[in-house]
Computed example of a mutant assay.
Amino acid sequence: MTAAVATILGVTLAACGGSGGSTADGSDPAAGSATDTATLTVYTDQHADLIKGLTDAYTAETGVEFNIQNDATVGQIEAEGGAGKADVFLSEDPTPVAQLGAAGLLAPVDQTTLDQVRPGLSSPKGLWAAYAARSRVLYYNPTVISQDQLPKTLAEIVEPQYAGKFAWAPSGAFVATTQYLIATQGEAKTTTFLEGIKANGVNEQKNGNVRDTVEAGKHAMGLSNHYYWWVLAGQKGGPDKLVSKIYHFPAEDAGNLVLSSGAGVLKASTHQAEAQKFIAWVTSKDGGQKLIADAPAEVSEAQYPVAPGVASSIAGDLSEVKSPAFDMDELADSSQAEDLLKQLGLSKG
């Protein structure tokens, strides 16, 4: 366990004192049940330290142990099928968990669990629950461009005055944004926008490169995810140590698109009840959400908690981000976006 994980576990357990308090008769719900000593197998493609923090905290509260497979894929789970080993899948982005739901491999999440999450972030079919989120943002360097000169919408960034002034990267979140644009404004308009991105912007290949080149002043602006900037701020000693800044578009806009990390219970799991309990804890404001809110950036990756009334101690409150409403289950099939990006020469290279 890293020092950061150990620290946040101590803070979380002291503050929470358990995931759900006591039962009606005053007994400890973490004691005495056979399911409380189960071992859950978690497949995940989320950042390893965050999963380590969440599962260690849950073990400390309940006695439930975990087998964790990092860098798990949808293809692996599909290949295992009914003989699958996973009880729970924890995604970094909505696409993989939405794909599992579309393939009929997830059991419905308990409604009481879904009700703990901000509306619009989980599967509308109830197949998975959001447990963390990240938002698309624009980084900018105020020594190169002032805030009042920034585009007011994502669409404006392809206008002539911004030619050669911004960076972008063909990440999974960029693909998701493209799929959102296709779904909401059509392929023709999205194609025109992407052609502008290619003509006006510089492909830095990775979000970390976008962040670092904007910070260095190589580019005035950069399209990316919010958490990369906050992670660098943590490494440098605080946001005041960075030259660059985060900019959220001022109105509800695709440039602010929020994308969920999703938690699902595999139908093939032989520990259905305990898997459901774990996801309930992960999404509860006194359990996993508090850990995500309070963890240092090296553990949480500065991701947003998704329970109403719980704000990240690093990035702030998700309610401040003006993201458009979006059915994230639509990301189960991003082939239209992937094909278009490939056609235009905007895929990972």
Rank of each mutant, 00 (worst) to 15 (best):
C16T: 15
V74T: 06
T192N: 13
E215R: 02
E159P: 00
T191M: 10
S122G: 10
G288T: 12
V88N: 06
L291S: 08
Y131W: 14
H219I: 10
D87Y: 07
V64W: 02
N225W: 10
A315S: 15
G349E: 15
D56M: 13
L40T: 03
Y247W: 09
L106H: 08
L346T: 05
P142Q: 03
V306S: 15
G84M: 08
Q76S: 04
G255P: 07
Y180C: 09
K206H: 11
P151M: 13
L259K: 08
G20R: 15
W281R: 05
Q185D: 00
F174V: 10
K125T: 06
A15P: 02
G126A: 03
S312Y: 05
V88H: 01
L106R: 07
P308F: 09
P124N: 07
T283L: 03
G17M: 12
K285F: 01
V64H: 03
Y227K: 09
G18K: 08
E301Q: 14
A325G: 09
K342H: 14
V97K: 00
A60C: 00
A293G: 04
F66V: 03
A4Y: 08
I279V: 05
S334R: 12
G126W: 05
L340A: 01
S261H: 06
G255T: 07
F193G: 08
A199L: 05
E156F: 13
S224Y: 00
P239Q: 10
V158K: 03
L344N: 13
Y139W: 13
E187D: 07
Q343H: 15
L121Y: 05
G120N: 00
A72I: 06
G32W: 00
G18E: 10
E301M: 15
G208L: 12
A311E: 00
V202M: 07
F249K: 09
L259Y: 06
G309H: 06
T55C: 06
G238Q: 05
T178N: 05
G234T: 06
Q336L: 02
A130P: 04
A60G: 05
G196V: 04
A220P: 01
D240V: 02
G26T: 11
K241I: 04
G84Y: 10
C16G: 15
A98N: 01
A220L: 03
Q116T: 09
G82W: 07
D212L: 05
A83C: 12
I157T: 14
V97Y: 02
R118H: 01
P160D: 12
L13M: 13
P296W: 11
F249T: 15
K342W: 13
E80I: 04
Q205M: 03
T190Y: 07
A233P: 06
